[in-house]
Each structure stands twice: as C-alpha cells, then as structure tokens.
C-alpha cells in the first residue's frame, strides 16, 4: 500500500505541474503584451527579460498620435458598452418582472415568445437586414447604430424572470398595500435583491459590446466615431503597426484592461455565467 500512495503522490504532483504549465501558457501572452508596451520600438524584439530598457514612451506616443484618436476611441467604447449594458439591465429587469410577477392577458404568449427567441437566436442573417436598415435610415457612424440594435436581450429577460420567481409574492403584495407603484417595486425591491443576476448579465453584455468588431466595422465609417477595438484594428490594418509595435501594444493593454478589472471584481459571476450562458445558449 505504501508504494501505491507514493505513486499517487507523484502523479498528483505531475498533474499540478501540467495544470500550472497551462496557466503559464494562458498568462504568458499578457506578460508579453505588458512588457512589449513598455519597450521602445527599436528594443521591441529584444529579450523579454531585459527590464532595463522599459519606459512609458509608447503610452505617451499613443495619447499624442492623431491617427489613433485614442481618447475619443476609449470614450466611444466605454460609452457604447456602458449604455448598452445599462439599457439591457433596465429593460430585462422590467420585462422579466412583468412576465414573472404580473398576471395579465397575453402573458403566456409573450413568455413563450421570449423563450423561443432565447433558444432560437435566428437565422444569423438578420444582422445584414439591420445593417441595410441602418444605411437606409442614414444612421452610419452614429451612436444610435452602435447601441440601439443591442438594447434588449431575451437571455437577460429570461435570467431575471427566473430569479424573480424565487422572490416571494407576499413581499410584492405588502409593498402594493403600502402604496408602492409597480416601477417602485421593481427598482426598490426586485433589482436590489437580484444583484448577482444583474452582475452576470451586466458583465457578459459589456464584454459582448466591448469586444465587438464585425458590427462596428460595418457601421462606423468616420475616424472619430471608432471604438477602441476598431481604432486599433484600423491602425494595424493601415500598416501603422509595422514600425510602431510598442504603441500598438500600449493601446492593446488599455483595450484588455477594463475587462480584466471587471473579471477580477465579478469573477464568481463570470464562472457561474459560463454554465448558465454558455451551456444552454446555443
């Protein structure tokens, strides 16, 4: 028996080494990114462990570079992702409240429709029609085009309605007796009680908009309306990256940072969200 436990112990150590190796592989590119952003362009391809050459030059150049519109692009990204996230949370919460806590005519039809929508995300061709709509309404290069097509989420309504069902009806009844309006109930009672659901929906919505490339590239044609993601892509594709790798890396650090911060704050919700969001939403 003793030799078996020694063998198990050894296997356990090898397993941990392999797992740590994969986490090193996962983290290394971020390390490479940060170090690269702190190098001057002429030192860019020198050893990654050469810490003496590090400066903040690339960041200064990044702010100064006219082509990148860095501040404006960062603002656009934050504004678009933030506005869509807030709107999605708001509309999902009120719609979820109506279909889970209110009794009204046509309710089962609406509830079934939302489930249908959530499960069958559509033909995947719809965005071309929406794009044509944006062009014909002359909405290219506007915040409207970046935000309005993403304001609602069937998944969000579903998440909220499922969670609201666990909140006892008595709470709502007593609030009504006290004279609280339906909106008052939603914002004073229901939303404060469902922070965890709001966090899951919020971080995933924010991530979707922040990382989006295809839609923004289609609807944004003016440099000052570009999101940070698009602005960096545009700069790299324009050939700017060839002689300014440090600068591109600096901008990419800023592009990666907000989601990392969100992830560190809401890591539990992210991990729960992948089983609710990723596992079932096909």
């Amino acid at each position: 028996m003793k030799s078996k436990s020694i063998q198990d112990n050894l296997i356990g150590k090898i397993v941990i080494c392999l797992l740590l190796l994969w986490s090193f592989i996962n983290i290394y590119p971020y390390f490479y990114l940060v170090i690269g952003s702190l190098k001057q362009d002429r030192d860019f391809y020198t050893s990654i462990l050469n810490f003496k050459v590090l400066t903040f030059d690339s960041y200064e150049k990044m702010f100064a570079l006219e082509e990148l519109h860095f501040i404006r692009a960062l603002f656009n990204s934050l504004f678009v992702a933030g506005a869509v996230t807030l709107a999605t949370l708001f509309f999902s919460a009120i719609t979820g409240y109506a279909i889970s806590k209110l009794d009204f005519k046509g309710k089962s039809f609406i509830a079934n429709f939302i489930i249908f929508q959530w499960i069958f995300t559509g033909t995947g061709v719809g965005f071309i029609v929406v794009f044509k709509l944006m062009v014909s309404l002359n909405l290219l290069s506007t915040y409207t085009a970046l935000t309005v097509p993403f304001l609602m989420s069937a998944w969000g309504v579903f998440l909220f309605s499922q969670y609201f069902k666990t909140i006892p009806m008595a709470l709502i009844e007593s609030a009504r007796i006290e004279g609280c309006s339906e909106f008052g109930i939603i914002f004073r009672i229901m939303i404060p009680m469902s922070k965890s659901v709001a966090a899951i929906l919020g971080v995933f919505t924010f991530m979707g908009r922040w990382n989006d490339l295809l839609w923004s590239i289609l609807v944004i044609r003016k440099p000052h309306m570009m999101t940070l993601n698009l602005s960096i892509a545009n700069f790299v594709l324009g050939g700017g990256g060839r002689d300014k790798p440090g600068l591109i890396f600096a901008a990419t650090v800023i592009l990666t940072l907000p989601l990392l911060i969100l992830f560190i704050i809401y890591r539990k919700q992210f991990i729960t969200g992948i089983s609710i969001g990723g596992g079932l939403k096909l």
Binding site: N26, G36, W210, I232, G241, L255, L259, F263, R267
Partner: peptide, 25 residues
C-alpha cells in the same frame, strides 16, 4: 481557484487584442 481564473482569462480578450499579441509572437 487560481487555475480556474487563469484558464478563463483568454476567453475575455477581444479578437483584435489577442491577434495583435500573437502576430508578434
């Protein structure tokens, strides 16, 4: 929990961001 967090990291990163990094790698 450290391993889980580090395994989730790449999944958050924008396509543009990891493309920029791997282009240089």
């Amino acid at each position: 929990s450290f391993l889980v967090i580090s395994y989730f990291l790449p999944n958050l990163t924008a396509g543009v961001a990891y493309s920029v990094i791997f282009q240089k790698i």
